[in-house]
Each structure stands twice: as C-alpha cells, then as structure tokens.
Amino acid sequence: MGSRLTVAKREIAGLRAEKTILLAIGIQLFIAAFSSFLVVGLVSMYDPGALDGAEVEVAAAGDAVADLERVAAEVPGASVTPYEDPAAARTAFDRNAADAVAIATREDTGKTSIAVTAPDATVETTVIVVQLRDLLRTYERVERVERADSLSRPPLPLPDSTGSSPYFTFTYTVLIPVLVFLPVFISGSLVVDSITEELDRGTLELLRVAPVTIGEIVDGKALAAVAIAPGQALLWLLLLELNGTPVANVPTVLLLMTALTTLVVGVAAGIAAVAPDRRAAQFLYSVAVLVLFGGATAMAGGPTNAVARLAIDSATPATTLTVIVYAALAAVAYLGVRRFITENGIGE
C-alpha cells in the first residue's frame, strides 16, 4: 500500500507544482456561469413572463373578433383591440400602435381561421409569437369546450397555472450533472497523460527499477486521479447550496461520481497502456468517453439522470440500486484493466 501511496503522492505533487489544475477549476466555473447566461437568455425569449410586464397588443378584425377579444381578457400577456376591417388593423400595425395583427374569419366548414401577422425579425418577435400562441391556444380551448358535445372524448380541464422558475428544472437536470461529471473526464484525461508521458520521456523504465510492481504504479496513478475528483464536485455542490439551490443526497451523488471516475480512469489506463503515443491515446480516450457517456445518458437510468434525481430528491430505491450497479461495474472494470496491464505491461 505504501508504494502506491508514494506514487499517488508524486502525481499530486506534480499537479500542484504546475498549478494548472486551477485552470481546470476555472473552466468549470466558466461553464457554470456561461450556461446560466444561456438559460437566462433563452428563457427570457421563450417565457415572456420572465420579462417584466411584457404585454402584446393585437389589432384584430374579421367576423370572429368579438370571441377573440373575450378570450384575451383571460390571457395575462395579451390584449386585443378590435378594428373595423383588416386594412384598419394593418394600418395600426404599421403605425406601431399594435404588435401584431389577427384577422379572424368564420368559415363555412365551422372552423375559424385566423391570419396572424407578426413583425419581422426583431428581438421582440419571439416574445410576440409566444404570447400570440398563448392567446390562440386559449381561444382554441374555449372553442373546444363550446363544441364538447361533438367530441367523443372532451379535453381534460387544465389545472391553474402557477408561477415557476424556469431555471429550476435546468439547474437539476443539466447544470448539476455537468458540474458533477466534468471532473470525471478530467481525471481520466490526466491518467492518459500521466502514463503516456512516463512512456514518452522514458521515465517508466526508471520506475520499473524501483521496488514497485507495474500494478502498483497503475494503482498509484489511478488513486491520485480518483482522489481529486470528488473534492471538485463537492466544491460545486457547496457553491450551489450557498447560491440557494439545495442539493439532496450529496453522499450518494459523490459515491456515484467516484464510481464513474474509477470506471473512466480504468478505461483511460487501459487505453494509455496499449496506444502507441499520447495522440492516439487521447483520441481513443475522447472517443471512448463520448461513446460511454453518450450511450449511458441515452439509456433509461443513465448516470446523468440518476444524478439529477438524487440531487432533486426524487430518488427511488431503483436509483440507489443504479448507484450500486455502477460501483460494481467500476470495480470490475478497473480490476480487469489492472490485470490486463500486469500481464501485458505498458506500451509493449
């Protein structure tokens, strides 16, 4: 055990001397800040309620305009002003007196057709279209209820809408998994670098003369890489906690994350041991990680989803079982790789 710790200590000392681990943490901070920028930006485009007092003024005309006006009273973000005829409504639009034009016409088939004109590409277009959709959907709902007798299965009544922060789901299902898994990839990449560098510089030969086995060297390197991962994740979770986002099941999340780090580190060590040089090793590692994580995320009960459910406190016994399965998988994969390396050596 002592020799493993020595190797691990040497690895960590190297990282500390270079200080570039700070760069890695900086990158993660940047990603966190940037993704919230993205979400705020996108959400304010899609959820105009997030913008203060966004009210869309619709100039309406046509023979069904009275219905439209009645419905608009129920929709918070839109108001409808009736005009004599389409030309008058359009003039109002052109004079900037209205944000959009809606011409509602009853047709012989019994349907109402609405021709809507929205202003072309400006920042507000998206907001206006979203509000218009709200208005028109409400109108559709009202019309449906009036015709419910002709429907074989009437639509279900909707619950009242509640104000909800649109960032909430994003924080738990995207931001937290990203922040938790970034250190995993970094650790794997570190192991690839560490092993290929020893090979490249020829220092592995020196290590072999020392009284350590090749398995112990791999163990030490893996130990260092796995050890630095949960700390980073914990840092992020604590930061989120400070920021008013409670994270549940932190130990389980960290356990899952450590298991995945072990898995990825094992894969990375295996790749580094067989690949001819760093370029090939890093390339294979990137592809493998993409495949592994892409595949696992797409599966039901993938690690991303498991972390989201744990963090948001919707975990079921099945989620805990998933964590155990991942831990077992990681142990098996790592031991397999280690055995492979002790039998075949590194870079031979």
Binding site: T112, T117, R144, S152
Partner: peptide, 23 residues
C-alpha cells in the same frame, strides 16, 4: 386526444396562418 378525434372541426376549431412582415 384531439389528434385522435374523428370530428376534426370540433377538435381543431381554429386554424392559424402566421406570417411575418416588416412594418
């Protein structure tokens, strides 16, 4: 539910055409 409805007029009583125009 509405998409499966045989009575199209009752299920989708409103048709919308959206276009964009410069003021």
């Amino acid at each position: 539910l509405m998409a499966a409805e045989p009575n199209d007029t009752a299920a989708f009583p409103v048709t919308v055409t959206l276009r964009y125009a410069a003021r």
